[in-house]
């Protein structure tokens, strides 16, 4: 895992300066770090604890509470499939199996080349377009076997 660059530290410092209290920028800063490192490392947490001037335990509690943050690197492309009730009714489970088959991994894992990781997610707020997919923070509605094939090809 690479350490933070000076440029990156600057971005994080901007989050710490944006809201009425520095610590209010923590969740956004963690989102940023997760995007850069595809996980939040011990080193990142130590840096954020210093930046926000709070005990490390607080950072680790937040980083392990929210599902957006991981302690182990996700794939370069993080694919989530919604398992909420509406999406389940629309067949999210068979979409998940389809993705598992195409990627050759089980839900919760990453491909050996680090290109994809697959996870099931709770409601993505796109119930009318089920089964909903989430690809790198972007919502994709109404997944079909075909659309999934196209999608995977597009993602490097």
């Amino acid at each position: 895992m690479s350490a933070l660059t000076l440029e990156q530290e600057k971005v994080l410092k901007a989050w710490a300066a944006r809201y009425p209290a520095p610590i209010m920028g923590l969740v956004e800063a963690l989102r940023q770090v997760q995007r850069w490192h595809r996980c939040v490392t011990d080193e990142d947490e130590e840096y954020l604890a210093r930046l926000f001037d709070v005990p490390r335990v607080r950072i680790h509690e937040v980083a392990t509470f929210f599902p957006s943050f991981t302690q182990k690197p996700t794939g370069r492309h993080r694919i989530g499939i919604c398992r909420g009730l509406s999406c389940s009714l629309a067949g999210s489970q068979s979409m998940c199996s389809c993705l598992e088959k195409k990627l050759g991994i089980k839900e919760g894992a990453s491909t050996p080349d680090g290109r994809f990781s697959l996870e099931t997610m709770e409601c993505l707020g796109a119930c009318e377009q089920g089964p909903a997919l989430m690809v790198n923070d972007e919502l994709k509605g109404a997944a079909t076997e075909e659309s999934i094939s196209h999608l995977l090809e597009e993602l490097e």
Partner: peptide, 14 residues
Amino acid sequence: SQVSKSHELGIFGR
């Protein structure tokens, strides 16, 4: 967090 103020322990995960 409050008494020893040493902050070693936390509740991790959810």
